[in-house]
Design a protein around this nucleic acid. Structure first.
Lengths: 172, 172
DNA sequence: TGAGTAATGTTAGTGACTAACATTACTCCG
DNA sequence: CGGAGTAATGTTAGTCACTAACATTACTCA
């Protein structure tokens, strides 16, 4: 992974071949793909957090779907903010600056999205509305994440707050 | 395109090679790629609608970002619903049932997303909040689109209504 | 009719991945 | 301490999406 990050910063993501990464790491291309299922997996890992789904399920039943998703994410974040190394930001910065990786980010959120949608359905939301709310929530979070990666603000929490605030309808 | 759709339905998207599509169409693989920039472009085209950005710009300045995006999409939709053939649904149904295409859908929305974000910025929203709102809006719309494709409801308008209703905070 | 242009074909290559099988390193039990 | 077994790595060969460069056909329009 260190070799990959070096090369991505030297030449850019698209101009870096998997063979080159393996080479710099002193291993074979095969070995690279045994450690990472795809080239983009070096940058994008989906740490699906069951806490989010749990927190959503615990939201008051009276809340509408989007509000429950928002509340759940907020609760999960404040209760257990994941430790983030500077490396996380470095990785996301590359994602942010590489258009061809946009799709990979979304594809990678699929599992989390499904978990959020399921949690909403468990709360009584219709499947269709649940998918919409989950997709919107992850869209907002991913956008905020990339924006945070591009800036200098050290606190990821405030980026997440932004996403939730906008989602909740509170941004001019 | 007809050849591609046939094959996608016969064997599934992933199991259909570009060469096979070209073959059935009676052309060369090269010719296929001259008509479609990628294999997934057969299914996913991004008809970026300048009307949406325009409609967003026309939303009252007092509205928060997400509300303006919602209002703009709604206005653009009611003023000029694009004609949709049954083929559109057929294509989306394949997208919906093929996980490996999720990323392509998102990647393809990038242009529209940027246009929406720009329109919001023009209205006075901060770039960060604008990206969040745009990403959330497209996430919701895409989810609704796929859901519509999977169902039997002929009216796409009601699917869009669902997306906007959930985004606006009005779904249990 | 003939010149020019657009669409198509040909060939060859790159790069992300995968499968099957050989090989090394490392562990742990007797 | 040695040898069996297992995990990590290497080798080879292949598939598939996609691209570049150049040749060729078809089609248009003066």
């Amino acid at each position: 992974m260190a070799a990959a990050l070096e090369l991505f910063e030297e030449r850019g993501y698209d101009a870096t071949t998997a063979a080159a990464i393996a080479d710099r790491a002193g291993v074979t291309e095969m070995t690279f793909f045994r450690h990472f299922p795809s080239k983009d997996a070096v940058l994008i890992a989906d740490p699906y957090d069951p806490l989010i789904a749990e927190a959503i399920r615990r939201q008051p039943a009276s809340l509408p779907a989007l509000a429950a998703a928002i509340g759940g994410v907020a609760a999960a974040w404040t209760s257990a903010p994941p430790p983030l190394s500077g490396e996380v930001r470095e990785r996301l910065r590359i994602v942010s600056g590489t258009p061809s990786l946009r799709g990979a980010l979304a594809r990678n959120s699929a599992q989390t999205e499904a978990a959020i949608a399921q949690a909403l359905v468990d709360r009584g939301t219709t499947p269709a509305d649940a998918r919409i709310a989950a997709s919107a929530t992850l869209g907002a979070l991913n956008a905020a994440l990339l924006d945070w990666a591009d800036g200098d603000e050290p606190d990821l929490g405030s980026a997440i707050d932004s996403a939730l605030r906008v989602l909740a309808g509170g941004a001019g």
